[in-house]
């Protein structure tokens, strides 16, 4: 058994280790979590989606189906339309043409967005910032308890009475995540939520995102410019070019994924070549 395999085992279910099973088989089932376990997420179908700002056509016909509970990453160069696509999915902007339909009837609380900036209310305590995420349930009797459990989920329960201004950038983003999760959304749209964080904080946030997605089984759509983040977290990576989906890549790598492992690195390299052209992932030295 290689070092890498033993690390994977340590993350796996204790019961799985006790029973003598085919090791490759154990990893394979883990990788296909959405089909194994019933997902709370919503499926999403997009047809002929276009969006123009004035004469500038940002999205030029996007067709896409996302199964319930899938983790999709959207990558692409700046200005390719990836954030626009996310804003349309989240219902923040109206499309110029085309349709977006979810598998079932949705409430506003079912779809939540997280931005690059935490967008916390500086004049509200951490806890009441999380309560904002309950939407129309804000006034219900258990609002505080639900907000507290969401804060605990992101590991910031002890900061509940603090002002946001005393938190670090990563902590603020965790509060924003708690706010997005407190209504138990079925779709979480993430617009470069980790883009402004330092490298180490970003890695621990990625782990947190991966964990809550795994536990709460929502459909997750992550816009990022960081290809290694995309392959570390997602089931599927979409590369957007000139307002269209240029590549649709399945990330068929077992979870929990080992940061820096050869298969992740190889996939990252091939996506970067797709993005930037052949030889572009070389450092240029």
């Amino acid at each position: 058994m290689t070092v890498q395999q033993s690390l994977r085992l340590s993350h796996a279910d204790a019961q799985v280790i006790d029973v003598p099973v085919d090791f490759e088989q154990a990893i394979a089932t883990q990788a296909r979590r959405p089909s194994e376990q019933k997902s709370r997420g919503l499926s999403l179908t997009i047809r002929g989606l276009r969006k123009s700002f004035g004469s500038n056509e940002v999205l030029r016909g996007v067709d896409l189906h996302i199964p319930a509970g899938q983790f999709v990453a959207i990558v692409g160069q700046s200005g390719c339309g990836k954030s626009t696509l996310l804003r349309l999915i989240a219902g923040l902007d109206a499309p110029t043409a085309g349709t977006i339909s979810f598998g079932e009837e949705t409430r506003a609380e079912d779809i939540r967005v997280m931005f690059q900036e935490p967008r916390l209310l500086p004049w509200a305590s951490v806890l009441s910032n999380v309560e904002v995420g309950l939407g129309t349930d804000r006034t219900s009797a258990d609002a505080k308890a639900r907000a507290e459990s969401a804060l605990t989920e992101v590991g910031l329960a002890e900061k509940r009475d603090q002002w946001p201004s005393v938190l670090s950038g990563g902590q603020k983003q965790r509060v924003a995540l708690a706010r997005a999760l407190v209504s138990h959304p079925r779709v979480l749209a993430l617009d470069e939520p980790l883009g402004a964080l330092d490298a180490l904080t970003r890695i621990s946030m990625q782990q947190l995102l991966g964990r809550v997605w795994h536990d709460q089984t929502f459909t997750s759509i992550l816009v990022t410019h960081d290809v290694s983040e995309a392959v570390a977290l997602a089931d599927r990576v979409l590369v957007i070019e000139d307002g269209r989906i240029a590549h649709d890549i399945n990330v068929d790598i077992a979870r929990p994924r080992q940061r820096g492992s050869a298969d992740l690195a190889a996939l990252e390299g091939s996506i970067l070549r797709n993005l930037l052209g052949p030889g572009a992932d070389a450092t240029g030295l």
Binding site: R112, V113, E117, V132
Partner: peptide
């Protein structure tokens, strides 16, 4: 951005003003 956030989280006009 905070106003957009408030709208996303379903605040009514009066709530948006107050909060």
């Amino acid at each position: 951005q905070l106003i957009e956030m408030g709208r996303i989280y379903g605040m009514s006009n009066s709530e948006l003003f107050r909060r």
